[in-house]
Simulated scan of single mutants.
Amino acid sequence: MTQTTTNSTAPFRYDIVGSFLRPQGLKEARAKFAQDKISRDELTQIEDKYITDLIHKEKEVGLKAVTDGEFRRSWWHLDFLWGLKGVAKYDYQKSYKFHGAKTRTDNAELAGKVEYNPNHPFFKAFEFTKSVAGPEAIAMQTIPSPTMLFRDNRSDNWPEFYDQRQDYLDDLATAYHRTIQYFYDLGCRYLQIDDTTWAFLISKLNETKDQPEEHAQYTQLAEDAVYVINKLLVGLPDDLTVTTHICRGNFKSTFLFSGGYQPVAKYLAKLNYDGFFLEYDSDRSGDFSPLATIWNNRENVRIVLGLVTSKSGQLEDRANVIQRINEAAQHVPLNNLCLSPQCGFASTEEGNVLTEEQQWNKLKFIKGIADEVWAK
């Protein structure tokens, strides 16, 4: 199975979802900051040190795109949402329903009309990441999807601030568009939007298929998601690659959602992303047949197969991973496929249940397979 065509633009043949295990020293520093034992400036200096070390390791393992590991965040999504105007932090009073683990009870909610924040803290964080990445690697920025505001009571109160839901959706898309444009102005050329909403919808559309009224609520949510995402993408620069990672939940090596992609494939096919990172590390993800639906509608799109789990340190069987890439290539041309971990290694600061050494071994494993499958 020799493939001579290389991939010099994002997403790359071997790529990452974005988050990395937090070193113990960083965890301790964040705990001290929470206890008012060190200042924000002191914490930032410590974060800078660990992020610099991380990016050097990412380069050493051969990654073409690097991230800051989300080391400045507690949550993969909430820290970003809290930085938008019109979004506030509050105590959800209950944890998210992961299988086998309980999260903290932080959440976000609408506190006004959603607006772009020119002083969003992620901008300064990206500037640092880009400066450390240098010319040898692309600094990739990861942010949560705007659809993350649709769920978990985060915007049920939209009528308090908007006469029409359409106005809320438009404001949300505009805030994201302006945010992404400013990342671009700062030098970002590769941005990933992480999204658990589609996995949530897989579960709900399956559960309600014999309940027409409730099913219609979830199909409307899917249509709203397509509208907002495509609207925020309109007019972004042509040399900016925007991908999405469809996540099924990732907390202390546990998960939230199961089911194949078929119920949402027709919606994914409408999304004007440049690439899709899709989790395929277990039977929970179903087969590869829905890939054809995406490909048939978006023939230039790249699909990044998350065949290597980030939830365990044990390496997969190499031959089996290559076989599964071959199976996926029956639905999408091999030249449009890539390989990555199924998710990040630490979607929250707690991290998954594996060691840092195992984390790096996973990435070396992925690169080795990609070099073999897409031979140079």
Rank of each mutant, 00 (worst) to 15 (best):
E60H: 05
V61R: 00
T67Y: 07
T67F: 04
D68K: 07
D68P: 08
E70I: 11
E70A: 05
R73V: 15
R73C: 08
S74V: 14
W75R: 07
W76R: 00
W76T: 08
H77L: 08
L78C: 05
F80R: 03
W82N: 02
W82Q: 09
A88R: 06
Y90P: 02
D91T: 06
Y92W: 15
Q93S: 13
Q93N: 07
K94D: 07
K94G: 09
S95Y: 15
Y96F: 15
G100Q: 12
A101Q: 14
R104W: 15
R104D: 14
D106W: 13
A108G: 04
L110H: 02
A111K: 09
G112A: 09
K113L: 02
V114I: 09
Y116D: 06
P118L: 00
N119R: 10
H120F: 09
P121N: 12
K124S: 14
K124G: 08
K124I: 09
K124V: 10
A125N: 07
A125K: 04
A125M: 13
F126E: 06
E127C: 08
T129S: 13
K130Q: 06
S131L: 09
V132P: 02
A133I: 07
E136F: 10
A137P: 09
I138G: 07
I138P: 02
M140Q: 15
S145A: 13
M148K: 01
M148Q: 12
L149G: 06
L149K: 00
D152R: 11
P159R: 04
E160W: 13
Y162T: 07
